[in-house]
Amino acid sequence: MLDLLSYGATGWGDELLQGAGMTLLVAVLAYLIGLGAGCLTAAAKLSGPLPLRWLAATYTTVVRGVPALLVIWLLFYGGSGLVGWMAGLFGYGGRVELSAFAVGVASVGLVSGAYAAEVIRGAVQAVPKGQLEAARALGMHRLLILRRILAPQALRYALPGLGNVWQMTLKDTTLVSVVSLAELMRQAYVASGTTRQPFLFYLVAALIYLVITTLSETGFRALSRRADRGVRRATA
């Protein structure tokens, strides 16, 4: 039975590993999009003009309120039309197509961004206002305050939450398998359909996910420790 997992033409080992690579690629790209969208949305929520604030609130409420699977189906069926319409606004009249990969990255990124926005907003709000006022009183430049005062502290507060968003994003990539993107879950699905060994292949897939989530959790913990350096804690 284990030869089914071997590397090469007869085994599924190489397909599973390629799938894991695709999973990581989708997750990382989606997470980056999510961080970007999250930053923007948080900024809009905290200090944007009313229409932008309203838009940001709608985005986070709606996307966090519907299943990621539904977002993927919606973008899979309607994404091309939407992007075509937006391209039309910028004067591009041609046909725009979205591959399963683009749909996967965009929809998981969209979901990731809604959750990241809430984490980032909370972190920014957690930085004491007095510090910003003090920095301003010292005559610090805006960008300098952002770089030296706000960003490092907000990042520290946001890291645990952003770690959770990463785990969620990674798990959400499994849902992209429904649109036949050859990521890990899809490869396990195809392999189990052909070999009729679903238990084996889903178990292997589960183990690979387990390894990825555990490793990345360790990574985020290390980041947190680094961000916490210089912060004194009360010891019990």
Partner: peptide, 9 residues
């Protein structure tokens, strides 16, 4: 400041 943070993002 927050807007500036957004800009940086």
């Amino acid at each position: 400041w927050i807007a500036a943070l957004g800009l940086a993002c």
